[in-house]
Amino acid sequence: MNNALALDKNIAITPASERELKNRVSVWTAIQNTFTFAHRTLLKSIRNPESFMDVTIMPIMFTLVFTFLFGGSVSGSIANYLPIIIPGILIQTLMTSCGAVGVQMREDMDKSITNRFKSMPIARVAPLAGALLADILRFIVAGIVIFTMGAVMGYKPEAGILAVVASILFMTLIAWGLSWMFTFTALSVRSSTAASTTGMLIMFPLCFMSNAFVPSDALPSALRFFAEHINPVSKAVAAVRQILSDGTVGTDFWMAIVSVIVLLIIFVPLTLKVYTKKG
């Protein structure tokens, strides 16, 4: 090993007293740190292509299964069901993906690499913010996969391709807001297995007690009230359907945006608190 570990080149270490030190992390540094962590998350997902399965193969499978299973009974035909199911699959996929980020964060926190990050002069929130930033890319991938699948099955949104782009961006924003809620619960529980279960527990009622897969007037009255008036997922799905059919935004769009802002106001501080405390 030719004297490999001898550190032959003598790098003189600047003594502590001669260094210029700051006790605060600047906003600019925090942003740079966040992008570095987002880059790290993406590099890791590229090395591990299975991590993209939940935004590629899963939605393809769900679109096929739901369309052929319920298409006839809910809407009379497959062609009539696609405009209902595609936005539903989109939100369900994004929410499943949100859950995965929470689990990933939880796993990272249990690893010793977190100790190195914690001993470095970086913004405390950067690992979390970076992972959530990288997530946006996953959401967009999911959106493209789902609309491509829809097109293959014969779905042509009336409002055209720009409406599709707008829908993907809108859903990405909604999902990003929801992902803080998932991350908070994942960080609050004891293990990553528990994090994965609680993720499902949030995703299922929000997705299925909504208008995402069936028209909400088919639901029993109590569920129907929740689906129509409380569940932000219903608002988001209704907004996307409107964008795709008429190319316009209405009350549902703004209601969904407001719900997300409310969720962010609640869950961003909570998430940061539990993250800095545990991490």
């Binding site: 010793s112 100790n115 190195r116 002069p121």
Partner: peptide, 15 residues
Amino acid sequence: QKVRQLIGLTGQFAS
């Protein structure tokens, strides 16, 4: 944060 600019840490388990 000042302390963190002055230290390097190699933990017990590869980080």
